[in-house]
Structure formats: C-alpha cells, structure tokens
Computed example of a mutant assay.
Amino acid sequence: MQDYKTLGRKFIVAIGILACLGLYSCSDITNHKTLFFAHSLPITHPVHKGIVAMQEALNEKSGGKLQIKIFPDGQLGTEREVLELLQIGSVAMTKVSAAAMSSFAPEYRVLGVPYLFRDSEHMFNVLEGKIGKELLEGGSEFLLRGLCFYDAGSRSFYTLDGFIKTPEDLKGKKIRVMNDQMAVNMVNDLGGSATPMAYGELYTALQQRVVDGAENNVPSFVTSNHYEVCKFYTLDEHSMVPDVVVVGTKFWDTFSDTEKKWLQEAADESVKKQKVYWKENVEEGMKILKEANVEIYNPDKSPFVEKTKPILEGLMKDPKMKKIIEEINNQ
C-alpha cells in the first residue's frame, strides 16, 4: 500500500511542479524563477531557519529574479523520496542528512562514522575545506549537487527506561535509527537492536513502546516533542552527521553562471547564520529538557568508541574511503 501512496505523492508533486514550470519557461517575460525547496523538519527547527536565511539572501542578491519557495514538515515526502524527486527534476532543492545522501552518493558514508570528528570545530574545518568541497561536488555524478553543510550537532541516545551508561545498557533495546546501514551497524555493534523507521512515525512508536528509544541531537529531540515520552537522555555523542543542502543538477545545469553564483553565495552566507541559530537552539533546548524533568547523563565515551571501531576499520578497507579518513584525521 505504501508504494501506491508514494507514487501518488510523486505524481501530485510532479503536476504541481509542471504548473510552476509554466512560469519558469516564461522567465524571459516574468524575469524570475522559483525553486521549490522541500525538507522534513518543522519551521521551529534551526535548520529551517537557516534555509529561510538562504531564501532571503538569494532574493536580495538576485533582485527577486531567483527565488525559493519552502515546503517544510515533509509535505513533499521523506528525505529519500525528495532526493528522488530532485533526480527526476520535479523539485529543485532539499536539505537532508548526510546519512540519507550516502544512499545516493557513497562517499558521504564517511561522515556517518562514529566518533570521526574530535569536536564541531574539527568537523567544520573539514566540511568547509577541500574534503567538504569534493564531497559536495561529487554528488553531481548522481544528479545531486551539494551546496553547503549545515550544523546538525551530535547525536545521542534517548530512551523510555533508564540511561545508556555503557554499551551493555543497550542490550535487548530496540533503538530507532535512520534508514542508513552505518547507523544500523553502529547500534547493533553497541549491543542494541537497530530499528530503521521514518522520523514521522517515531513519536507514536515511542508512545506504544514499539521501540525503546532513539538517537538524535538536542534540537530534534525537542522540536519533535519526543522528550514528552523519553525522560532519559544520554549524551554519548556517538556521531556528528551534518545536514546537506542539495540542488538537483537538472535545475543547476540550466542556470547561468550568474545564477549559480547567487545561489552558492546565498547558501554560504546562510551557513554562518544557521550555526548561530543552532547554538542558540541547543542552549534553549537544554533548558526545556530540564524544565520537563528529562534526566541527562554524560557517560564515559571510551567504551562506545571501542565498540564502534569495527565500522571505521571496515570502511578503511576501501582505498578511497581510507584516503578521506586519513585526510580527516590529519586535519
């Protein structure tokens, strides 16, 4: 049944975009183009605010000639579905987790390696340097060109019953993860039972104890209201998987050099603001969690690091991945 729903959604979106393209094809007359930007987060999320900053910067730089129309809250589908819509040219842009991008552009897998980055400063030195640029541009081979990386903080476990003080505490627990093999391997290696599930289904799954917990960053834990159900948050910070702003090459390749410059500059400028929004949101989120009587625990990370080493070692068997990881470690 889900397949029919997905096909129906894609058909409706395609029809809507075709209507928009009626205006796009007349751009010589109207002198403006509108890019549909779809993502799965609520409008209160700091990543959405970063996208709004990009929207405003692009409108200003282009004098309204190149505009973004945002569709938040998963209105046009899940991360994977929207990426597929970008590939066929029905939607222009999206924001997805780098983990979701790894299903389309394999080199993004490296960003999901547990405990890969020493801290957020190290992460952004990598993402805003040579390695990050190569990853963003490399997606073009798969019709998905990255424009920039957004801060998505560090992911930690939140659970219904008790902290995850050590990996042993995950034994017998079903933990929701993204539909990403590395995330699945990580939870399983730590001793839990990884349960891939759509983000929009998670609140109900937690309420009904279909799963025992999940893992995510502070802003997502708060804006999803999962903290209403899960009262134990263990800050093991097992991964720092950034978000990626992506434009479909079916749109990008039609832009003039000037339009490409406008869009890239708007994206780059939005990164600076998004980092500020993120930091503020984390601070506010921690206050909300404490007021909601969510208990927070900072564990010794070394047992988690040790248990997840097989993931890094497995990826290092690929010469291309080994080169990227070594470059990251040396930065």
Rank of each mutant, 00 (worst) to 15 (best):
5 K>S: 13
9 R>N: 12
24 Y>K: 09
30 T>R: 10
39 H>E: 06
40 S>G: 15
43 I>E: 15
45 H>V: 03
50 G>K: 04
53 A>N: 03
54 M>F: 08
61 K>E: 12
65 K>Y: 07
72 P>G: 12
73 D>G: 01
75 Q>K: 15
76 L>K: 08
77 G>N: 01
91 V>F: 06
92 A>C: 03
93 M>H: 07
94 T>Q: 11
102 S>D: 06
102 S>W: 02
105 A>S: 11
109 R>V: 08
114 P>R: 04
118 R>P: 05
122 H>E: 07
124 F>V: 13
124 F>D: 11
136 L>T: 13
140 S>G: 10
140 S>A: 15
144 L>P: 06
154 S>K: 06
156 S>N: 13
158 Y>S: 02
161 D>M: 06
163 F>R: 12
170 L>Q: 07
177 V>A: 00
178 M>W: 04
180 D>C: 09
184 V>N: 00
193 S>N: 11
201 E>F: 15
208 Q>W: 11
209 R>F: 04
217 N>W: 03
217 N>P: 03
222 V>F: 00
222 V>D: 00
227 Y>V: 14
232 F>Y: 06
242 P>H: 04
242 P>Q: 05
258 T>M: 02
259 E>H: 11
260 K>T: 14
261 K>N: 10
262 W>P: 03
264 Q>H: 13
266 A>P: 01
273 K>G: 03
277 Y>E: 12
281 N>P: 02
287 K>L: 13
295 E>D: 09
298 N>E: 11
299 P>H: 02
305 V>S: 05
308 T>N: 06
315 L>H: 06
326 E>S: 15
327 E>D: 15
329 N>P: 05
